[in-house]
Design a protein around this nucleic acid. Structure first.
Lengths: 349, 349
DNA sequence: CTGAAAGCGCTTACAG
DNA sequence: CTGAAAGCGCTTACAG
């Protein structure tokens, strides 16, 4: 490994000067700057990150976390269907982080670690900030994180705003309102809801949006048709099978997400119900796959790009600590595809 | 931040001793060890990682890389449908890394970085080893990595074996053989192939396996029915549309992957072809979603768990440098679901 | 079994 | 605008 000492010698300056050039310190003579840069290029010098971190007492590292429910491993749950939407956001997060000169780190967490240990391990690594994807706000580690002064951006979980933390989310309420209104405009009045878990505020916001749309149309929600399931394709499929075994007196289903809708679609087709002939179905998220089911899914588009880059940009603002950072709430957009249609005249309800 | 100095004072020993206890050095009196551990617990001490890395000239960090084709960002492509299979492997990689005391790092790579810079940036971060997911072996960065002495495990790309690198992969050839034999046993003789890109050795191995199965049955591959597409759902769907517009004289399609099969299924259903009534369809990978399409997919199961943990275990062996490490080749397993059936008598070919 | 001391490669007030 | 020097918090031969 070539060190700053070697660069300094070649350029005929001190290590301090090399460091200053590297860090873009002002008042360095143009000529010195040039000599140093030439030496860096010639030697292929790259600063030792560990040494920088130690000297600066900080790092250029952003932790990317996504907690699952059953274990402590922080990023393990990316592969679960419920999180495909977030996986797709990693791209824009990565892009934003690179552009700002940060690295991404996946903090692995031992299952037996206490909340205090979680915070300490972030500190021991001098993590500059944390991007927390879709997390249960009641998780004690989240509470500890929120109490700490580590800059954190929460994606899709509302965890206050201020000097240390803020959030980015879609306007779930409006999205649910719109997609429900879309079904109402097609003549559906008996609508089933297969929501994500209602402990998750995202679900609650969406439920509220749907309720508002129904209320405005003077239509009431049928208690037995309000169902919950986990966010996964698997759980949504099972819950729908259970629903169908009890009653089928609805003409549409609002799913909590696209991945849930895929499971619901499977359950409907198993029963010989056609979509949208017998039942209309809506998703939420607009994941890539929603175009490739048969029928393709009517859904609400969430702006992953905007959320990812907005998250990084706000996190960096928090790290730099100049001011309070406000939350980012992205609009959603209705995408009408094949899975919704007018309520059929001959539907026997 | 509490430092080892404070622990040393509380325990009445030197920093050197604290360090030794922490690193499990032998010949430390049991009593001292106990006192130090007590002090650590009492103070909530966690070693400063940057200082450790600097002093040790190494880190406990594993780089997890997945190169896309169009840009330098290393992990950005996780969200693309072609990589859902690997995303699902992150879980077992994470678990293995944590168990061995390593952290996972996502090296972000600026688009304009040269292969030399890529290696230098890994070195500057003292990365202990690299886990390289499904990568184009001709990428110059891969070549540079392979020439370097940084321990690397390649997943699904055969890049030699030895003291610095080895690979883990499924037995793709056998898998393709089995799934093709399954179709042959159902009476299919005119089989279309929608392979992944044939620059990718994984595709070639699978093609070879299929060819062997066909040859053994005395059946020849129809040139026009051998198609290629990108690994994504999108590209497979489009390529199938193109195929169907030209000819339909086949009774089965072998897809390069499950995610491709989902796109193929969509294209078939758009044309009013029923699966498996008109055409049988096979996938590969056994991703979770293969159970939730209608019809569900007959596919080859790849042992993600085994591959992920095997990859980490071998990488650590490479890092410790005790010996040559042999590649790991996992068996695959046929999973028969709804998308394949006997060739129908009335099929007009 | 344990301590004193040097060293890892940077950064950053402090002088000039 | 630039250098000498101290410091970041560990680890690890070297003695004893």
């Amino acid at each position: 490994m070539v060190t700053s000492e070697e660069v300094a010698q070649l350029a005929g300056v001190s290590r301090a000067t090399v460091s200053r050039v590297l860090n873009g310190s002002p008042r360095i003579s143009a000529e010195t700057k040039e000599r140093v840069h030439a030496a860096i290029k010639q030697l292929g010098y790259e600063p030792n990150i560990a040494a920088q971190n130690l000297a600066r007492q900080s790092s250029q590292m952003l932790a990317l976390s996504l907690f699952g429910e059953d274990e402590g491993l922080a990023i393990s749950h990316l592969g679960s269907t419920e999180n495909y939407f977030y996986v797709d956001m990693v791209r824009s997060i990565d892009r934003g982080a690179v552009a700002a000169g940060y690295d991404l780190f996946l903090p692995s967490l031992l299952p037996d670690r206490s909340p205090e240990n979680y915070i300490r391990s972030l500190r021991a690594r001098h993590v500059a900030g944390v991007i927390m994807l879709a997390v249960d706000p009641s998780d004690p580690r989240i509470q500890a994180l929120f109490r700490s002064d580590i800059p954190t951006i929460f994606v899709d979980s509302i965890n206050g705003e201020g000097r240390h933390a803020t959030y980015v989310t879609s306007n779930h309420m409006d999205g649910a309102y719109q997609i429900t209104a879309h079904l109402l405009s097609l003549g559906h009045t008996r609508i089933a809801f297969m929501m994500g878990p209602l402990i998750d505020p995202v679900s609650t916001e969406r439920l509220l949006g749907s309720q508002q749309a129904l209320a405005r149309a003077g239509i009431s929600l049928v208690p037995d048709l309000l169902c919950q399931a986990g966010w996964t394709t698997e759980e949504a499929c099972q819950a729908t099978r259970a629903l169908l075994s009890k009653r089928r007196d609805f003409t549409a289903i609002v799913a909590g997400s696209d991945m849930m809708a895929i499971g619901i679609l499977r359950a409907l087709q198993e029963c010989g119900l056609s979509v949208p002939g017998d039942v209309s179905l809506t998703g939420f998220d607009d994941v890539v796959l929603s175009q490739y089911t048969t029928p393709s899914l009517t859904t609400m588009h969430q702006d992953r790009e905007g959320m990812g880059s907005g998250a990084v940009q706000r996190l960096i603002a928090l790290i730099e600590g100049r001011e309070e950072v406000s939350p980012l709430i992205m609009p959603t957009q209705l995408v009408v595809r094949e899975s919704t249609g007018p309520v059929s005249a001959n539907k026997e309800i």
